[in-house]
Design a protein around this nucleic acid. Structure first.
Length: 215
DNA sequence: AGTGAGATGGCCT
DNA sequence: GGCCATCTCACTA
C-alpha cells in the first residue's frame, strides 16, 4: 500500500512546524484554517479566507524591509508560529502570523475570516477582524500553537481546491512600488467575506513561479 | 459602484 | 513632521 498523508483532523491545533516554511506557501496554506480567540470564556472564531504574505528584508512593503529591527517589529524576528500585532492609523489593529524561522522576519497578514457565528459581526478586512476577535497589541508575540492559549489556529477539515484559490496584488501598499504588485495576496474565491474591491483574481498558479524576489 | 475625506496615534527619519 | 499592511460615512451617478 502506498503511504498516504493522513487526512487533517478537524480541531487539531496547528503545530509550530506548520508555520516554519516559505511565507507565500504559508499564506496559501492558511486558507480554510480556523482562527480561534478565547476571550472572557467565549470562543470567537472563523475560517481564514484572505491572507497576504510579507517577505521581510527584501520586501519594501514589509515592516522589516532591509532588516529594520525596531521595538514594534521585534516579534517578527521570533520563530514561525508567533503573532505579530500592530496598530495602524491610530485606531485599527492588524493580526499577522510569523513565518519561517527565528531571525527571518516574515509574516502573513490575516485579512478576512468567514465567521463561525453571526454574532461575531463583520470579519472582512484586517481592522474589523481584530475588532471582532478582540485582538490588540497585548497579543503581540503570543505563541499560536497551544489550544490552552488565548489565541490559536486549528485544522477545520476544509481546504480550497487549487482552482478555488485566487491570487492578486497586495492591498494598501502602493508606496512600495513594484512590490505592491507581487502576487502575494491569497483568497478563497467566491467567499462573500473577501471584500469586493479585493476580488480581482487570477487562478492559483504554482508557487514555483519565476523566482525573483518571491523566494 | 466608485470616489474622497476625516479620524487618530504610534512609529520612524 | 509625515506617513501609514484601515474603516466609515457622505456624496455622486
Amino acid at each position: 500500500m502506498p503511504a498516504r498523508r493522513a487526512r487533517p483532523v478537524p480541531g487539531t491545533v496547528l503545530p509550530p512546524e506548520f508555520f516554519r516554511r516559505r511565507t507565500d506557501s504559508l499564506a496559501r496554506a492558511l486558507l480554510g484554517k480556523r482562527l480561534v480567540r478565547v476571550s472572557r470564556g467565549r470562543r470567537l472564531s472563523g475560517l481564514i479566507v484572505e491572507t497576504e504574505a510579507y517577505l521581510g528584508a527584501r520586501d519594501p512593503a514589509c515592516h522589516t524591509w532591509q532588516n529594520r529591527r525596531t521595538e514594534r517589529v521585534s516579534s517578527m524576528y521570533l520563530a514561525g508560529g508567533h503573532a505579530y500585532v500592530y496598530m495602524i492609523y491610530g485606531m485599527h489593529h492588524c493580526f499577522n502570523v510569523v513565518a519561517r524561522g527565528e531571525g527571518e522576519p516574515e509574516a502573513v497578514l490575516i485579512r478576512a475570516l468567514d465567521p463561525d457565528s453571526e454574532a461575531l459581526g463583520r470579519t472582512d478586512g484586517p481592522g474589523r477582524l481584530c475588532r471582532a476577535l478582540k485582538i490588540d497589541r497585548r497579543l503581540d508575540g503570543a505563541a499560536l500553537w497551544r489550544a490552552e492559549e488565548i489565541i490559536f489556529i486549528e485544522e477545520a477539515g476544509l481546504s480550497p481546491r487549487r482552482e478555488e484559490i485566487g491570487i492578486g496584488p497586495r492591498i494598501g501598499v502602493d508606496y512600495a512600488g513594484d512590490a505592491a504588485a507581487w502576487p502575494l495576496r491569497f483568497f478563497w474565491r467566491g467567499n462573500p467575506h473577501v471584500s469586493r474591491k479585493e476580488r480581482g483574481w487570477k487562478n492559483a498558479s504554482p508557487l514555483t513561479r519565476p523566482s525573483g524576489p518571491i523566494t
